[in-house]
Amino acid sequence: MATLELHGLVKRFGGVTVVDGIDLTIPDGAFVCLLGPSGCGKTTLLRLIAGFVAPDAGEIAVGGKRVSAPGSVVPPERRGMSMIFQSYALWPHMTVEQNVGYGLRVRNLPADEVRRRVATICAATQLEPLMKRYPSELSGGQQQRVALARALVVEPQTLLLDEPLSNLDANLREEMRFEIRRLHDEFRYTTVYVTHDQSEAMATADLIVVLNAGRIEQAGTAEDIYRRPSSAFVARFVGGANVLPGRLAGLATPFSIRLEDIELVAAPGAGAAGAVRGTVVRRVFLGSSRDYVVEADGELVRVTTPPHVDVQPGEPVWLGFPPERCHPIESVPAGGS
């Protein structure tokens, strides 16, 4: 069992609190994404879980056993975890085969078993023809596979991934996303995946944890986070929604609405009742859609329309806000855009 429990976790570097009271339970076998902008503390949180960093307060338990608390940290090598680093961290002086087999040799397994298990994992990750090569002789995607194979060959209970796809080009990134999910489903270890890319998070995770300034803003499924953001930060960071002032039961309450959920029409009365008049400030043609920035009541509103809706900048438009698409937000913390 590798249920991962974080309780009141705090980490400071110098005077800066990087991780600020994180409580989170990750069930055994789950795939969790820590999503947030750079500097939000997600990498530090991952390094706390790995045991490279000691917490200043709080504790971490794996399968009910405490592994991290201030002043007592089980070292990384005794945690039964594996990690994929952003740099891949392949050892340049070892071949693919030696890199992949390292964790098994450290565990003092007999040589023929090492060979057998390395061969099996290399087959699963399509590395067989490359076993005798050195990392510098591999492409980025191949290096990524070696990093995966090296992490998985030891059959970890927990796999940690730190922005593993940020060094790959767009096509490969998409392919590896599914590969990472496929391997997770095949081996059923607990996965903690750190990224700043919301589409990566949505494509892979069971549970997305949005982090901001060292705190959890919202935790939920991709659908939850996207459709029902609980804060202005989440609304803006995940998919870039509008956060606008509104009224709910007579009280001033900000609300969020997706770009594609706003109805934009060029003539009054053609759209929903209660439409707001505005002026087009900017218009961008994106092929499958058009992106507008409209000024209405002193607010700049971003709207996405089908490509056939074509209004010149400076022309008036009417914006409709379907109430079922507007999500009230209780408070407006600073940050994000």
Binding site: A50, F52, P76, E77, S82, A89, G103, V106, R150
Partner: peptide
């Protein structure tokens, strides 16, 4: 790169190793 060392640690090697 420090991650080269950290990768070894996580795979079960001690600091000295």
């Amino acid at each position: 790169h420090p991650e080269l060392e950290e990768a070894g640690r996580l795979l079960g090697a001690t600091r000295l190793r």
